[in-house]
């Protein structure tokens, strides 16, 4: 008698959970974090990058956990990708296209993340210049339009993969069982996709066209944000 607590079942469930909680949640946070670029280099470097580093005293542990989660989710995702035989040329249905895109975006996102982590996180360790001013480093990167294209692909892929993953999780965990529930959740996940993609684009736009040098946005703009106000307190002590 097979038991539900077998490696295959648990791996699948953990894969789903990893995608949602550490990876998915981090993506949301990360997109928000970078959308702060719009408020200029100083704000970004000191308040966001620095601030988070200080706020999270266990940064290494968090980063390692995240890295492991992404790798686990990604590598097992490759196994799933390997088992599929997409057939969108024969069966032209919405869910079938999304099924295909989920697999395509898993590849694009995984590749993008590796490249992205190298250029941003690892470069910080290797290059003091980058470490001191990540904002400018990003701006320099974005000077190349191809990099922007890459980022657009990376962001859209990641947000689609997360939003569609949410829709899938609703089914596989048994929250949305009926077609109507699945239609509603598809609409909701579509909204999530649009929202996250907008935030993501906003960060690219932010790095390209920050408010810097003009009207510095007052801290009031971010004061409502707990992270920001924590940072303020931290600085004053």
């Amino acid at each position: 008698m097979a038991d539900s607590l077998n490696a295959h079942f648990l791996t699948r469930k953990i894969h789903s959970l990893l995608g949602l909680v550490p990876v998915g949640a981090f993506l949301v946070f990360h997109l928000w974090e970078n959308s702060q670029a719009r408020f200029g280099a100083e704000h970004f470097n000191e308040h966001v990058v620095e601030g988070i580093a200080v706020a999270l005293n266990y940064k290494v542990i968090v980063e390692l956990t995240l890295a492991c989660a992404i790798l686990a989710h990604g590598i097992y995702g490759l196994v799933i990708w390997w088992q599929s035989k997409p057939n969108i040329t024969q069966y032209h249905y919405g869910a079938n296209y999304r099924y295909y895109l989920q697999r395509v975006t898993s590849l694009t996102t995984f590749a993008f993340i590796i490249w992205h982590v190298y250029h941003t996180r690892i470069m910080v360790e290797l290059d003091e210049e980058v470490a001191r001013d990540l904002f400018t480093h990003m701006q320099r990167l974005y000077a190349d339009p191809w990099i922007i294209v890459l980022y657009v692909i990376g962001i859209v892929g990641a947000t689609f993969h997360l939003a569609n993953g949410l829709w899938l999780a609703g089914i596989t965990w048994g929250v949305t069982t009926h077609p109507r529930a699945q239609r509603i959740s598809a609409a909701a996940c579509g909204a999530v996709f649009l929202l996250l993609t907008t935030i993501g684009f906003h960060s690219i736009y932010g790095f390209k066209y920050p408010y810097e040098g003009e009207d510095q946005p007052g801290h009031a703009d971010v004061i409502g944000d707990p992270t920001a106000s924590d940072l303020d307190q931290h600085r004053s002590t």
Partner: peptide, 15 residues
């Protein structure tokens, strides 16, 4: 259906 080849192997392409 909770082992290999079971429900978790469905990809929800819904064809």
């Amino acid at each position: 259906i909770m082992g290999e080849g079971g429900l978790t192997d469905c990809g929800n392409a819904q064809n």
